[in-house]
Design a protein around this nucleic acid. Sequence first.
DNA 1: CGCGACATTGAGACCACTCAACCCCAGTGG
DNA 2: CCACTGGGGTTGAGTGGTCTCAATGTCGCG
Lengths: 228, 228
Amino acid sequence: MAAEITLPPSARVTANVAAGGKPGIALFAGCPELLGTPFAYAREEEIYGEGEEAEFVYKVVSGAVRTHKVLSDGRRQITGFHLPGDLFGFEQGEMHRHTAEALSDTRVLIFRRRGIERAATRSAEVACQLWAMAASGLRYAQDHMLLLGRRSAVERVATFLMEVDERLGGTGTFALPMTRRDIADHLGLTIETVSRTFSHLEEDGALLRAAGRQVSLRRARLRRFVED
Amino acid sequence: MAAEITLPPSARVTANVAAGGKPGIALFAGCPELLGTPFAYAREEEIYGEGEEAEFVYKVVSGAVRTHKVLSDGRRQITGFHLPGDLFGFEQGEMHRHTAEALSDTRVLIFRRRGIERAATRSAEVACQLWAMAASGLRYAQDHMLLLGRRSAVERVATFLMEVDERLGGTGTFALPMTRRDIADHLGLTIETVSRTFSHLEEDGALLRAAGRQVSLRRARLRRFVED
DNA sequence: CGCGACATTGAGACCACTCAACCCCAGTGG
DNA sequence: CCACTGGGGTTGAGTGGTCTCAATGTCGCG
């Protein structure tokens, strides 16, 4: 579709979903009435912006997404990274409260928020699923508040690495899907501090760095930097 | 009841609620099956602790409550202050993920979590209310992440004062219900920095301090410290 | 009056930030 | 083939905002 290239992303989505392009994947297991439309975004492409109408909800199929808030002078806080299987973009209220962008080429499933909300008012089971999702987001945000408010740079980076490892399969070896700037803006640090902290952790034998954001964690050593 | 003085708080609650002491106030308007039992806590009394079984949910009637997380070395992050009308202590899962304490003598209504959850599985309306509550908590937590990760000390304190003012009625004049330590542990600062920042804001004519944590905000001036 | 909890203020230290240089690599064009 | 460019990452030197430590002030209460 040539139109997809010239239209802004949200218009492309609207057109595509309205055309009924290949829907068929359910939002929740055992909930066949909520079907998603496959869609794709390029690296660094905006998926939706803060303040826009929250028409759709997204589920990551492959790739990765970040959601963030910005202050008027450009300071940025990344509120979350979304990996395959994760849902994002769900708001209560008509507007998105943050911006979402693809970290790399990313495939998603798109759902109409209206449809989900309508289903929730009719089905207690759907509503409970939504509640569970919001609650788990809340848990994450509160843990992150402790990290941002009270942990040192090493603790933040070490905690972050262990979290990403776990979400990526827990093998201890993986490629970070985001840049240093993204990490810094998630952890409330600067790129330079993140970079220095990586070096420090490597000197201490807590990790190994290889080409292209590849890292291998020595988890036993890393854990020593994470008070809890 | 003499027993209330010697038993630990949670045991007192269990005994009292089991005895059916004066239930009768509903959790949500138009939801008569979820009734709450009135209960009271003294200043600085623990309401529940991190890791305890989440048996009850609480609604503040008067007074104020803080919920927090702690690291093993004592660093503390207050995740929220709960004022009259606010609900707190609601978890998904069997355990409380933070500790709750009364800031001052506080009256609450207590609800059984099981009862609410059972109602949610049966009523989409109840489940949607729970979803809405979790979503609003999430919104707050994400705004606070931006504050903790990216704002300066003055911005944090100014933002906090405007928020408390609003929640306390928006008159611009009120008594802070919490100590400097509580404020510091909510804003990711130290008591000294909070105190100095109050002084700085007063010098700049953004507020007036009076006896006993009383403050009057000059909101127009305060706002200048809050980038957004 | 004296005590303890809370709050303020000062002096100096330190962690993370700012500014700047440099490296590496991939892409592009001559 | 090489030169050039730009984005991402690392490293160094110096600054500064917040923290630490310590002294002092204030207020409520026994």
